[in-house]
């Protein structure tokens, strides 16, 4: 959006780091500050930085996902992990855990997977809104294009 060499360089370097950090935040969330919501906001901040530095078209090319679909999948995925409890005649969303922690990830249970759903939903929603604004012809006539993403 602003053709700034500094911004573009920083964005290029920071993007993978921020995305990694967001996943890290997501996974540590259960025991240390972090979690799906914070991780999701971080990830979308990283992507929004791309949008600002290189424009929405480039940002779309770098990360080829449909954000609306991603948001929908996040909600679905989150809701999905409430279901197993029903098979054991427990209330919806009762938690199940694998007893031994998996190296590098930590303990896995349905709440963590639910948090992944939250993570995806937040990324999808926030980034989609940013893209909508960035691609709004009245706001940024220079990015007008025939796009039908989702």
């Amino acid at each position: 959006m602003y053709e700034s060499v500094i911004l573009r360089t920083v964005a290029r370097v920071m993007m993978p780091l921020l995305l990694l950090l967001s996943v890290f935040m997501l996974l540590r969330g259960h025991n240390l500050p972090g979690g799906g919501f914070i991780g999701g906001l971080l990830a979308s901040a990283a992507i929004i930085m791309q949008i600002i530095a290189f424009g929405p078209t480039f940002a779309r090319k770098v990360i080829r996902v449909g954000y609306l679909n991603m948001a929908a999948f996040g909600v679905f995925f989150g809701a999905l992990w409430g279901l197993p409890a029903l098979f054991f005649n427990l209330p919806y969303m009762d938690a199940f855990w694998i007893n031994d922690p998996i190296p590098g990830i930590g303990k896995i249970g349905t709440p963590v997977l639910f948090d992944v759903g939250v993570f995806l939903a937040v990324i999808g929603v926030t980034t989609r809104v940013a893209l909508l604004l960035a691609e709004e012809p009245e706001l940024f006539p220079m990015y007008v294009q025939a796009e039908t993403e989702e």
């Binding site: 969330g29 259960h30 025991n31 240390l32 500050p33 972090g34 979690g35 799906g36 919501f37 948001a71 929908a72 996040g74 909600v75 989150g78 809701a79 409430g82 919806y92 969303m93 938690a95 855990w97 303990k107 249970g109 709440p111 963590v112 639910f114 948090d115 759903g117 939250v118 939903a121 937040v122 999808g124 929603v125």
Partner: peptide, 27 residues
């Protein structure tokens, strides 16, 4: 809740259903 971060355990486990409602509202 098998988690030391109380806030996160509340968000995804104890009151997980609220969070599900919230991400639905977001969507």
């Amino acid at each position: 809740g098998k988690g030391a971060n109380v806030v996160n355990v509340i968000l995804v486990d104890f009151r997980g259903f609220d969070t599900l409602g919230e991400i639905t509202v977001l969507f």
